[in-house]
Design a binder for these strands. Structure first.
Lengths: 187, 187
DNA sequence: TTGGTTGTGTACTGATCAGTACAGTATATA
DNA sequence: TATATACTGTACTGATCAGTACACAACCAA
């Protein structure tokens, strides 16, 4: 029983990398089995509904991870400034300083947008709203907070697109630096 | 003979919308024929090398369009400020105020990145460099100009990702407004 | 060791994939 | 009207697609 859980988790992590690299429709089952090392038997055992369930599981895991490591610190009522700082650090590490792209972004621009639209929407709105809440608690007005939060999330996504496009992770690092600077210092 | 050119041009325009909506691997030939109204016979007549040539033609057309309508005005030596202004107007119109996404961005995040990497890279570097050159001529230092240009292109791409993800074009309009404000006014 | 559950490899299915072949139609010039 | 070229519909190919069936292996508890 514990074995199942552990291995399904490993499968999800491996699947995430496949979908991240090739998108949803670019990830054929042949490619998935090859890149994850899992045979069809195992994959359909863990995900009886097939590819769509695999993608759902991956998105769910991304959601879960960001909730725990990014959104929760932002919603910490005592230290909003510290939560924002940690968000930048965590995001930088998660995207490997620009060498990795955002799986949710990949799904958003691909044809999978129609399939997973609700989840994609929720991911970005949760992020933006959590950041806006933190900013508001540092003393910004509602409008300033929402506007700045949107600017930051937009900037991160755009930087990932350009870093990938130009094969230059430094674009991401520079963007993070600019975005940090654009936030009124407090605490 | 004039007919050929006109119809191939129409084909490219129609193809662009298919690739934009569904990405490269999400655009099956069945979907392409259906959405463009062109049969396989016509498609392979215009694009003998198939789908890859269709995508190349579309990317080429995007390049050509941006060169003419965006990069050229930026490189106009007499009125850099006016060129930047026009860039924002043109970009806003081109992306239908956030209702449309960037085809090059779609290809950059999808599995087509490996296939069309060179062209994708060139598109974004040309844009960024043209904008940086214009900014420099408004009086910014080299570094300020490059940094600001990168910020703007990153912001536009990120805004398109988020507008699409959250199905809210206003995200794009707000981003454009912020980016315009971030540019030192001159002229 | 036995029995049940969990996990896996393999061989298959029908559908869809990109691409080809080619006969046939439209068109434009002469 | 004749004819060459541009264009298009259709029927086909073999490869690959997602998904299924199922026998078998690994494991764990009794």
């Amino acid at each position: 029983m514990p074995r199942e859980i552990a291995e399904r988790g490993d499968a999800v992590a491996a699947l995430a990398e496949v979908f991240r690299e090739h998108g949803y429709s670019g990830s054929s089952l042949a490619r998935i089995t090859q890149q994850t090392g899992l045979g069809k038997g195992s994959l359909y055992h863990f995900f009886p509904d097939g590819k769509e369930e695999m993608a759902e599981a991956v998105l769910e895991e991304v959601d879960r991870w960001f909730s725990e490591h990014v959104f929760s610190p932002l919603l910490d009522p005592v230290a909003p400034g510290r939560g924002i700082e940690r968000m930048f650090e965590t995001v930088d590490r998660y995207f490997r300083s620009g060498e990795r792209i955002c799986l949710v972004g990949v799904f958003a621009l691909g044809d999978s947008q129609s399939r997973f639209g609700a989840r994609i929407n929720r991911y970005f709105s949760t992020w933006t709203e959590a950041l806006a809440a933190a900013l508001k608690r540092t003393g910004l007005t509602d409008e300033q907070a929402s506007e700045t939060a949107e600017e930051v999330v937009v900037g991160i996504q755009g930087a990932l697109v350009l870093a990938r496009s130009r094969q230059d992770p430094k674009i991401f690092s520079r963007a993070l630096r600019r975005l940090k600077r654009s936030i009124p210092v407090s605490e």
